[in-house]
Design a binder for these strands. Structure first.
Length: 935
DNA sequence: CCTGTCACG
DNA sequence: GACGTACGTGACAGGG
């Protein structure tokens, strides 16, 4: 053994970089025999193998180590608790692969090092220093710019993917300074990926300029007063502390307390038996063979242990047995259940479905659970079917024979359903997760076939199980109507005879599992794995929590309002009948139309396709200038709407047990990525009219708490400015200007200080029109101006902001070519209608223009919501509602400001690190005892 | 069940 | 030149 010294060459491999590169480069492969996710390990081994091959020549290293990160908390988090705070959580299928990459490194007989509390970069820095001081050479295999500060004095970097060496000049190219000043530049420029704050408004270019002028960061900060640019000077003076903190964050620790020396890293040949044994264990067939050839060793035999049924990682359509509901198992005892639990553990996955007495997860009871571990092998565990299936008078509450006691079954299932190593597969898992939660089971991890379909095929078809089964399995599931009937005599599921329930329920689990085997491998092929993994799947538990939390709604307030509305409506109705000269149903558009246009003979009656006169608000508003009756009808309609949809209906939605209102969000409810809200819809609570807004007074915080509302300011316009690259708009947002006034000023050549509210209003309508795929007709109708005038506005707008027209044209062209559009985050919205002829083409065109903007905004708030639970974990606060660009919280009094600060940080940074917007995202906040006050 | 209407972003 | 037209949702009432 030679001591490390002159002539020695140390290679330091950045292990985490290898892992992430491997993970993202490869489809989600799984081990054939048991489905263990293995894609990243496979890529990692291939990269190590390539590394060994590439470095066998005359310049071969004498010493080598792969360095890994360990733990998520490092000394940098003690310096700054937000360090790396906006990092994406590690994908669930990557986590179990991390220890395997360590084993892979050891199998290659390469030293594998990590240290709790330190990042890999610090270990690399320390080893590089030691090697340099010993007179040896160092090559760091990584492309991480944070390591560039180490280059020089015999230390180089090697970007293994691009096979490019980075020396002092290479660093200068990247940072504009040599390695010894890289940390100074990084301290100023900050880093959005690691969440290093830096100096706001200063990027790498400016930072390098300053450092080169003043020599060092310290000198720059000491002499900051001398800087000519006022903004820059102010930033450097005011943010000095933040900049110095940033420097400490980016400065690598070269004195990491290592418990090994350079000599321990000497290159060793792999032991063929160990290496091949590991590769065979992972079932990497071709790599095992290739390495065996190279080592001149016998390749171990990897048995073909494909389980019966399908492996979701395989390409093509798996062979599956026919769906036969007669073969499903009725689980009556723990012994019947055991084989399914065992099979689930063995496979690593199980499809799960719950049957309940109703569709409201917060107000129904669990009736049974079905499981499926492979296509065709499904069971149903009835738990609460009633003996008197025909609903007889006697024995109400008596349970049918052949059922396990519910608690006994749940006790057996809970460990499986909560086992992090077993994937629970469902169709619309949010529903089942909420049911289980009410029975004390926190189901995780989960996969959801509905969300897979949505991620891949939004805009192409629905994502309900029946539709998916028809489409992908050519199978019509047993209709629920066959079991429950319909209409007044409809049964609940606990009244269904168990023999029938077994077929229906187990079939659902079987179908779900089959869909999963088909859809899961398609995610990658459709390039939506990231969308699914980061914006669909993680949303399920977040929404489940919000829905279960519910929002407190004050019944008395609503009730009082209902009564007031009733009285006003009655008065209006009498008045209307008086004006009409006869009594009729004011709520009937048909009757109203006949009164207005036939009896009273008003002008402008237009019949729709059904032959009825149109009596929409716009029509009535026009008539209202001449006559009193339509004006009264408008008033009546507003009250009728408020009463029936809100003050009356909301009371019905107050949950008996919790006393709160629990909406249900549909993740796949809108093709653009927006959520929708049902039962009740809490995303359309009135706000625009004074009268309607008062309904929000009924949404209150409980005693001792406060409602806090945070909403994105102008998020869609900001996204438009970014996507269409409109410099003037981008600058206006950066400067915090009134964007509509600024648009008006640009378009109509009116100076900002002479702006009138009327001109601003028109510009605002145009700005919104642009987002919707503007047309002269639409704008004319909205602004109630002649079409020619509206068209003139649009022409002028495009003249002033030509980039907008380019964006719209490009988007439509993209949609025509690909039959889809995409958001900035890669969400796909299919636009099959874009090829249509006639008026439908117009719809499709405008939808295609709107979808990337609306969808990107939807993606951003989804990302914020997914990060929110961790961000507010330590605060006495609960996220309750989402209204497209707004999040509503409930927080204990006293913690309002802390919540606003934490939530705002998450929301404003939600695009990062995947997308760096050219415009800031701004979040406005409000608080009060009710939603009305908070908004 | 479909249509018209109207509440929201 | 005519055709219709702002984007995305959900709930309710009326009427067949």
């Amino acid at each position: 053994m030679t001591q490390f010294g002159k002539g020695c060459h140390l290679h330091l491999i950045d292990g985490s970089a290898f892992i992430f590169r491997a993970y993202h480069a490869l489809p989600p492969l799984t081990r054939k025999s048991d489905g263990l996710p293995i894609g990243a390990v496979s890529g990692f081994c291939n990269m190590l193998q390539k590394y060994v091959e590439d470095n066998a020549g005359p310049d071969a290293p004498t010493h080598v180590a792969v360095i890994f990160d360990k733990g998520s908390h490092t000394f940098r988090n003690d310096l700054y608790d937000l360090y790396k705070a906006n990092r994406e959580a590690m994908p669930e299928d990557l986590r179990p692969q991390i220890p395997l990459t360590r084993r892979a490194t050891e199998a290659f007989n390469i030293a594998c090092k990590e240290l709790e509390g330190y990042e890999a970069d610090d270990i690399i820095a320390t080893l590089a220093r030691q090697a340099r001081e010993a007179g040896g050479r160092v090559t760091i295999i990584s492309s991480d710019k944070d390591l560039m500060q180490l280059v020089g004095d015999g230390v180089e970097m090697l970007d293994a993917m691009k096979n490019r060496r980075i020396d002092r000049d290479g660093v200068f190219e990247k940072f504009g300074v040599f390695p010894d000043r890289v940390v100074d530049v990084q301290a100023l420029a900050g880093d959005s990926v690691d969440n290093v704050p830096g100096a706001p408004g200063i990027g790498i270019k400016t930072a390098a300029l300053l450092i080169n002028e003043y020599g060092s960061l310290e000198d720059l900060l000491d002499r900051a007063e001398e800087i000519k640019q006022p903004k820059r000077r102010q930033t450097l003076i005011e943010k000095r502390e933040q900049i110095e903190l940033s420097k400490r964050l980016v400065q690598l620790d070269e004195e990491t307390p290592l418990e090994f020396g350079l000599d321990d890293l000497e290159v060793r040949d792999p032991d063929p038996e160990v290496l091949l044994g590991f590769l065979a264990e992972m079932e990497f067939r071709s790599l095992t063979k290739r390495i065996a050839d190279q080592l001149d060793a016998e390749a171990p035999v990897i048995p073909d242990t494909t389980p019966e049924g399908a492996n979701p990682a395989e390409e093509g359509t798996p062979e599956m047995p026919a769906i036969e509901p007669d073969t499903y198992i009725w689980v009556k005892t723990a012994e019947d259940l055991a084989p399914f639990i065992d099979a689930a553990h063995q496979r690593g996955w199980v499809a799960v479905d719950t049957e309940t007495t109703g569709l409201n997860e917060m107000a129904c009871d669990l009736v049974g659970i079905s499981l499926c571990t492979e296509p065709g092998e499904a069971c149903y565990i009835p738990l609460a079917h009633r003996a008197d299936s025909d609903g007889g008078l006697f024995g109400d509450g008596d349970l049918a024979e052949g059922q396990m006691p519910m608690q006994a079954a749940l006790d057996l299932l809970k460990p499986l359903l909560e086992d992090p190593a077993v994937m629970k597969i469902g169709q619309n898992m949010k529903y089942d997760a909420k049911i289980f939660a009410r029975y004390g089971v926190r189901i995780a991890p989960i996969d959801d076939t509905m969300l897979m379909s949505y991620a891949m095929n939004a805009g192409l078809h629905g994502h309900g199980m029946d539709a998916l089964s028809e489409r992908y399995l050519s199978h019509t599931p047993i209709p629920i109507k066959e079991l429950l009937g319909s209409g007044k005599k409809m049964k609940t599921f606990d009244q269904v005879p168990i023999e029938d329930a077994v077929k229906y329920a187990a079939e659902d689990a079987d179908i779900t599992l089959r869909l999963w085997t088909l859809l899961k491998p398609q995610l990658h092929r459709n390039h939506v794995t990231r969308v699914y993994e980061t914006m669909e799947r993680p949303l399920v538990p977040v929404l489940a929590e919000m829905e279960m939390a519910g929002v407190q709604v004050d019944r008395d307030t609503l009730s009082r309002m209902s009564n007031a509305f009733s009285q006003k409506m009655a008065a209006l109705e009498a008045e209307i009948h008086e004006l009409a000269g006869e009594s009729f149903n004011v709520g009937s558009p048909k009757q109203l139309g006949e009164i207005l246009f036939d009896k009273m003979g008003l002008e402008g009656g237009k019949k729709g396709k059904t032959g009825a006169y149109a009596t929409g608000a716009d029509v009535l508003e026009d008539l209202a200038t001449e006559h009193e009756l339509p004006a009264r009808v408008l008033d009546w309609r507003q009250l009728s709407k408020l009463k029936s949809t809100y003050t009356d209906a909301l009371q019905e939605h107050i949950n008996k047990d919790t006393g709160r209102v629990h909406t249900s969000y549909v993740i796949s409810g809108a093709n653009t990525g927006r959520l929708s809200s049902t039962d009740p819809n809490l995303q359309n609570i009135p706000v625009r009219s004074e009268e309607g807004r008062r309904i929000r007074e009924a949404f209150v915080a409980p005693e001792g708490k406060t409602i806090v509302a945070l909403d994105y300011s102008q998020i869609e316009l900001r996204i438009l400015a970014h996507m269409a690259e409109i410099d003037a708009l981008k600058q206006a947002f950066r400067d915090g200007q009134d964007i509509h006034a600024m648009t008006a000023s640009e378009m109509f050549n009116v100076p900002m200080d002479e702006m009138t509210s009327e001109i601003r209003r028109q510009a605002k309508a145009i700005n919104f029109g642009v987002i919707y795929g503007i047309s002269g007709f639409g704008l004319a109708r909205n602004l109630r101006i002649p079409r020619s005038e509206a068209q003139g506005f649009i022409d002028r707008y495009f003249e002033r902001f030509p980039g907008i027209r380019t964006y719209m044209d490009d988007t439509v062209a993209f949609a025509k070519e690909h039959k889809r559009v995409e958001t900035l985050f890669g969400r796909v919205i299919h636009t099959p209608e874009i090829a249509a002829k006639g008026p439908r083409a117009g719809f499709a065109k405008r939808a295609a223009i709107n979808a990337p903007i609306q969808g990107t905004a939807a993606d951003i708030i989804r990302r914020a919501m997914i990060r929110m639970p961790d961000a507010i974990e330590k605060l006495p606060a609960t996220m309750l509602l989402q209204v497209h660009d707004e999040l509503i919280f409930e927080v204990e009094q006293g913690a309002e400001e802390a919540l606003i600060s934490a939530a705002r940080t998450v929301m404003e940074g939600a695009a990062e690190p995947v997308v760096k917007l050219d415009v800031p995202l701004v979040v406005d906040a409000g608080q009060g005892k009710s939603w009305a006050e908070a908004h």
